[in-house]
Each structure stands twice: as structure tokens, then as C-alpha cells.
Design a protein around this nucleic acid. Structure first.
Length: 574
RNA sequence: CGGAGCGUAGCUUAGCUUGGUAGAGCGCUUGGUUUGGGACCAAGAGGUCGCCGGUUCAAAUCCGGCCGCUCCGACCA
């Protein structure tokens, strides 16, 4: 492609909306433009990269037994009513773009495609002989995110690869899931990511297994935890952890309410009461759908709302507001405790709240804290479960190691779905005895446009993007100087043709600009190889070859440059 | 959803407090000198100051409404 024909000019200054390095670089280098909040134009350079990423994904999906199709983005409400997800996605979470068409029928722009694919397959599958099946598509998805962020990282319209597997039994699902898991690893490896696969929460979607593929980056929106000794790794929503346990008092002390004004925060509180922080207790009040719930965790921990949501089986869980807290506890925020709550409040507690003798908790009275509280004597034992948020420094749940925290960009997520959709939508098959069974499903997503952003996030310097050859929009940047010289211009054109004949993707900077501007743009765009030709190099019968990731250039023959470029870009030699 | 901020030329912005009909840098056009890391000189083009309404002799500026965009919050019990 001739750069004089390219759409998407480079910008010298950083657009003010850019929040991360990758976002700023994509805007400045002419890869994206914002059309509205969380909606981006994919300019030609990015379009080519998206195509290359998609192609790698296709190859791995096909190798894993997937077949590609393309489903409508526009979906009817009725399908979503079948799985009871319409209300959740519109009214509860509000994540779906929904509207009425001219006939008054309600439709939506698909945020995901479980309903549509299940509809297709329930007409396709009759017998166990029709299984397994795995379908995938690469398509634009729409999600009305609460807060679009970081350019392509969290957009409201984005490109996703979604795959769905259909099996007759659990063993089949396991095999399908495993094939996808391996394909995902290969995709991440081929894209050159520094990444980790982590255990993830499968949430209300249900199912028995789920993993996320996280590209490691400080700007990542998710926190992951991994063991420094074994291979345990999980996202924070899912992560379990062990806490240090402490020797307990031999005797129960009398419970007592202590006045301690304005002690917000467990560290201050523990210091004031002269007790260790682990003896303090946080009691958080939530509204779970229309039920009130109090969650107790040890004072040095936070509540993992995902774990609580799963335990309660509720749709929405949110902290209640200050007024309501006062109404329920009779105290200002900060003094809630388990004793004396109205019976309408369901009390649950983290495992590590248990087993403590003479612990502290809020007294449900402003400025008062109960000390020397004990289950059994002062209050009945609540329901126990794993409700705490795992953190850096906690113990590994599998071994004696410690958990470390890191930030990650979720580029892929694989799920065992089970029969949630197949049962709701009656997608079944008959076995060898003619008995019907619901099909067992899995679903597997990759954020294609997010992967492009992750590539830039992981590979850039102060001058611009440093593309990995396999996803770069072009293999090489042919930068021609001295184009006012007719001989140079003609030879540049010939070299451009020759490089293309060699099977290389070439961006030919044929613009009549000064060297500095051209080199600046080349660094910004970040193609793996830069070939410079000028009066000077052509007089020597050579070209200047430079790798984007290396500081130095060398002057070599065109043949050598072609061979080196092919090698750098992983193309077979000729 | 709650809170905050912003909206002036393609981009980055000054001007707004204290009303008097808009200025800069980059980019763009033309001419000239330059020509391997964003050069210089000269002359230009380009703005309904987000939209609607109000106050006023007069509004980018003050007031109200709307729209758009951005940021922050959802460990505090």
C-alpha cells in the first residue's frame, strides 16, 4: 500500500482522551478514531492487524475442530425470553442495546450468542450421531458498558471470536473444553503474549469449569493471583486463599461494648482496642435481590462479592446505602455488627471468622464496638462459607506457597456451560436407546480488538508501537527519501513492486516529506522492518535495513534485505 | 446509577473571574530557500466559540435547560 493513499493521519500531539500508552499510540499512529463513547473506527492499519489476529485465531479454531459461521448481530427478544436472560441483560445489568423496530417488535444488538447458536443447533441435532459439534464466529459485539475505558480495551462495540461446543456427555464436554484450552494457549503464544491462564468464576452462567487468559500488564483491569511455588493461578473473583491462624485465648471473656469514637478502619480500631487486627470483624450489609444479607469477614480481609452472589444464588448484590444502614442497625455507617440485627437480615460469615475466641465486631450503635464476642454464647453460629477476597501475601490454597498479585488484561475466557441453555431452549438428542438428553455445551470467547490493544500495551517504546511481525499491519515500511529526484522515485517504485512480488506486505512511504517526518511516522507506526532508500543508498546499489526493535541500521543489498525480512517475519525462505 | 470536570479551527489550547463581535502553536495552501531524524522565510485559507433559550445596547464570557465527551466512586462497616 502506498502511504500517500492511506487513511488515518499521524498526530504529533497526544489527543486528550487518551488514558494509556497503548490508547494514545493507536490514536497518534492513525490506527483508530473515536466515533462516540466506547465506539471506534478501525482505520486501515488496525484493520489489517485485526485481520491477521483473526486469521491466527481461525487457524487454531479450525485445527481444534471448530467450524466457522456468522450469526446475526440483530437478535429478537423472544429468544432471550426463552433463557430468561432478557430482563437481566436489559433491566438488571442494562448491558444490552435494545430497541423496537417499526412493527413494534423488540430486538437487540447481540452482546453474546448463546441463544442464537442454541437455536441453530436444536434444529440441527437429533441424535447422538450428530455430536459433537463446535461452531465459532468472528463478529462485532455490542455491550452498553457502564464505563468504556482505554480505547479498544473496554469498548461498547468490539470484535469478538465466540465459539460454542455441543456434546453428548461430560466426557465429551471435557474433550471439547480441553481442545479449546490448548487452542487458546497456542493463540496467545503465536501472538507473543506474556500471559497466564487463570481459574475464573463461571458465575450465574453455571457450569463446572472456567478459565481466563490474562495478558500481564499494569494497565489491566483485572487482578490475578498466583502461587509463588505451585501452578495455582486464579482471578481475584475466584481465588481462594489461606490465612495465618493465631493461638486463641483459653477462656471466654465477658462481652462488652466499648466506646471508641470515629474509629473508621480496622487498623485504627485494633490499635485503640489494643487487640490484633485479625480479632476485628467487618460486617457488610447487602441487598441481594430483595433479601437483606449481612456478611462477616475477618477485619483484615475484604468481601468477595462474587463468592457471596454465588452462595446466595441471587441476581444482583449491592451494598445498601447509609440511610438504610441506620434504619437497620440504628447506627451510623461503620458500626454494623451481627448482634441485634432485625430477623429479616440473613447472616453469613467467612470461615476465618469462625474459630476465634473473644473477637471484636460492631455493636450496632454509633461509636460502640463489641469486644470479647463469641459464637454460641453471644450469638448463634451463622452460615459459614468462603466469602473473603484473596489478596497478595495470602497463603496458597493448594500448597505452602504465597499468593502474588498482578494486573491482567482478559483476552480470552473459556466456560463449561453444561445444560443451562440446552434445557431452557430444548436442544436435545436421543441416545442409542432412543431416550432424549439435553446437549452439553461449552462457550469460548476471545476479544479480538482487545487483543490488538494488548499487543500494543505489551510492545511499545517512547517513540511508538513495536509490532510483532505476525500481527503487524505490514511486514515492512519502505521509506523513500529524495523523491524529487526522478531516478530515485523510479527505482523506489521498482523496489516496491519487487518486494510485493516477494510476497511481503509493504507500506511504501511515497510522500514527498522530509526525512525526519518519515522516520518519525515509521517509528510511531512500528512495522518490524524499515527499509530506507535514497540517493545515497542507491548510489551504493544498496538499501538501509533497520529493525524497529533495534536501534541500529545497516546498509545491505536488496536481496539480503529481502532475505532478512522474510526471516524476521517468519516467512519461509525462497 | 451517584459525584466532578470539560466542550473555542483537523489536533493541543489561550481568552471566561471583571460582557465590547476570537488569539497562539502544530497541521493545511501558495511561493522561495533547504533536503537522512518533524528546517527556515514570506504570504494565505480555515471558527454558527456543542445546541436551544434568557439577561443585556452588546454574550465565547453571566443565567437556565438540553446534548456530547472525560474522570472519579461501588473495602467503607
Amino acid at each position: 500500500m502506498k502511504q500517500s493513499r492511506l487513511i488515518g493521519r499521524t498526530l504529533r500531539e497526544v489527543p486528550k482522551d487518551a488514558q494509556t500508552a497503548a490508547h494514545a499510540l493507536m490514536l497518534r499512529a492513525g490506527f483508530i478514531q473515536q466515533l462516540s463513547a466506547g465506539v471506534y473506527i478501525y482505520l486501515p492499519l488496525l484493520h489489517r492487524t485485526l485481520h491477521k489476529i483473526s486469521q491466527i485465531i481461525r487457524e487454531e479454531m479450525n485445527a481444534a475442530g471448530g467450524v466457522e459461521l456468522l450469526m446475526p448481530a440483530l437478535q429478537p427478544r423472544e429468544l432471550w425470553e426463552e433463557t430468561k436472560r432478557w430482563e437481566r441483560y436489559t433491566a438488571v445489568d442494562g448491558i444490552m442495546f435494545a430497541f423496537k423496530d417499526r412493527r413494534g417488535a423488540t430486538a437487540c444488538l447481540g452482546p453474546t450468542h448463546e441463544e442464537v447458536i442454541t437455536d441453530i443447533l436444536r434444529r440441527e441435532i437429533k441424535s447422538y450421531k450428530d455430536l459433537p459439534r463446535c461452531a465459532y464466529q468472528i463478529q462485532t459485539k455490542f455491550r452498553d458498558e457502564i464505563r468504556p475505558r482505554f480505547g479498544l480495551m473496554r469498548a461498547r462495540e468490539f470484535i469478538m471470536k465466540d465459539a460454542y461446543s455441543f456434546d453428548a456427555d461430560e466426557a465429551g464436554l471435557d474433550a471439547s473444553y480441553e481442545a479449546m484450552r490448548q487452542a487458546y494457549h497456542r493463540i496467545c503464544q503465536r501472538l507473543g503474549f506474556q500471559y497466564r491462564a487463570v481459574e475464573a468464576d463461571s458465575g450465574a452462567i453455571g457450569g463446572s469449569g472456567s478459565q481466563e487468559f490474562m495478558v500481564l500488564a499494569d494497565t489491566g483491569e483485572d487482578t490475578i493471583l498466583f502461587c509463588d511455588q505451585c501452578d495455582y493461578a486464579a482471578n481475584q473473583e475466584k481465588a481462594q486463599s489461606k490465612l495465618a491462624e493465631f493461638p486463641q485465648d483459653a477462656e471466654l471473656q465477658p462481652m462488652q461494648a466499648v466506646l471508641g469514637e470515629g474509629l473508621i478502619g480496622v487498623d485504627k480500631l485494633a490499635k485503640f482496642l489494643n487487640i490484633p487486627v485479625w480479632k476485628t470483624t467487618k460486617t457488610m450489609l447487602y441487598e441481594a435481590d430483595d433479601q437483606l444479607v449481612a456478611v462477616m469477614v475477618r477485619g483484615d480481609c475484604g468481601v468477595n462479592e462474587v463468592k457471596v452472589t454465588n452462595h446466595l444464588g441471587c441476581k444482583a448484590l449491592r451494598l445498601i446505602n447509609a440511610e438504610k444502614i441506620k434504619e437497620l442497625t440504628g447506627a451510623e455507617v461503620g458500626y454494623a455488627g451481627p448482634i441485634g440485627l432485625p430477623p429479616s437480615v440473613r447472616l453469613i460469615a467467612d470461615h476465618y471468622v469462625k474459630g476465634r475466641v473473644n473477637f471484636e465486631c460492631g455493636a450496632n450503635q454509633t461509636n460502640y464496638h463489641n469486644i470479647n464476642v463469641n459464637f454460641g454464647r453471644d450469638l448463634p453460629e451463622p452460615e459459614f462459607g468462603d466469602f473473603k477476597l484473596a489478596k497478595d501475601g495470602h497463603g496458597c490454597p493448594r500448597c505452602a506457597g504465597r499468593l502474588k498479585a498482578a494486573r491482567g488484561i482478559e483476552v480470552g475466557h473459556i466456560f463449561k456451560l453444561g445444560t443451562k441453555y440446552s434445557e431452557a431452549m430444548n436442544c436435545s438428542y436421543v441416545d442409542t436407546e432412543g431416550k432424549p438428553h439435553p446437549v452439553i455445551m461449552g462457550c469460548y470467547g476471545i476479544g479480538v480488538s482487545r487483543m490488538a490493544a494488548a499487543c500494543v500495551e505489551q510492545s511499545h517504546d517512547d517513540k511508538g508501537i513495536v509490532w510483532q511481525p505476525q500481527v503487524a499491519p505490514f511486514h515492512l515500511h519502505l521509506v523513500a527519501l529524495n523523491l524529487e529526484d526522478a531516478v530515485v522515485a523510479q527505482q523506489a517504485e521498482q523496489i516496491y513492486q519487487r518486494l510485493q512480488q516477494e510476497g511481503l506486505d509493504v507500506l511504501f512511504d511515497d510522500r514527498p516529506l522530509r526525512a525526519g517526518e518519515k522516520f518519525g511516522d515509521a517509528d510511531l507506526i512500528g512495522l518490524p522492518v524499515r527499509l530506507t532508500i535514497s540517493k545515497r543508498t542507491l548510489e551504493q546499489g544498496k538499501v538501509e535495513f533497520k529493525l524497529r526493535r533495534e536501534p541500529k541500521a545497516e546498509v545491505i543489498t536488496l536481496d539480503e534485505a529481502v532475505a532478512k525480512t522474510r526471516s524476521v517475519c517468519g516467512l519461509a525462505g525462497r
